[in-house]
Amino acid sequence: MSDAVVVTRGLRREFGKLVAVDGLELLVERGQFLGFLGPNGAGKSTTIKMLTGLLRPTSGSIEILGLDLQKDGVEVKRRIGVVPEGLALFDRLTGNQLLNFVGRMYGLDRDTAASRSAELLQFMDLQDSADKLVADYSHGMKKKIVLAAAVIHRPEILFLDEPFEGVDAIAAGTLKAMLQRFTARGGTIFLTSHVLEVVERLCSHIAIIQHGKLVTCGPIDDLRRGVRLEGQPTGHALTLEQIFLQVVGGVRETQELSWL
């Protein structure tokens, strides 16, 4: 039995004349913590939207957990959890009501949804704000509640779009520990973030996309050894930032603004 949980073949998405994703071939295996990176406008969000069933590909196929996303979209959604780019919150519900709502949308029975909601609120340190409207939450609290909503149904894969943006260091520590425990127990995480230090610390694998195409993919340690910067001594381990800049085309020559 293959351990591949996310497989894309020739994945392409066009917006008019713009090709946002161009023949993406991706393979993610169970238990991987994959950092999906790319410069702005590279096609990361479009890819993650297609992988989570929010956007139809123009062509190509997506297989999640062995299921064809086009045919078995509902079943795939039942088994994945998502922290989307725009948070996607019903902010006129309280935190407790929101988690209960999401849990039941994933088919959890009433008691299970209630007990998991309470547990998650406690874990995320939101128990004192459980009866406040989500609209009244701070940005960091919203991030925490949306992450709680993403895991309440115990998904097998988590798709996280910038999950740590705006989260304080203490909360980020809690979330990271939770995510690492999730992968240690066989869960798979597909993470996008612009904070390379976070990706470097958490991820086991890296995929880098540019102009809608996958330019590199593999274990982070292999990339550190396999990619060399010009002038860098052989065998010298690179930082993720150096790898990223090398792969996406290196550092641009610094331009100057005459008026600044």
Partner: peptide
């Protein structure tokens, strides 16, 4: 009208 950004949540859920 009331879903706003939450419309994504509906799309992400395993509900037709």
């Amino acid at each position: 009208w009331s879903d706003g950004g939450g419309f994504y949540r509906l799309l992400l859920s395993p509900v037709s």
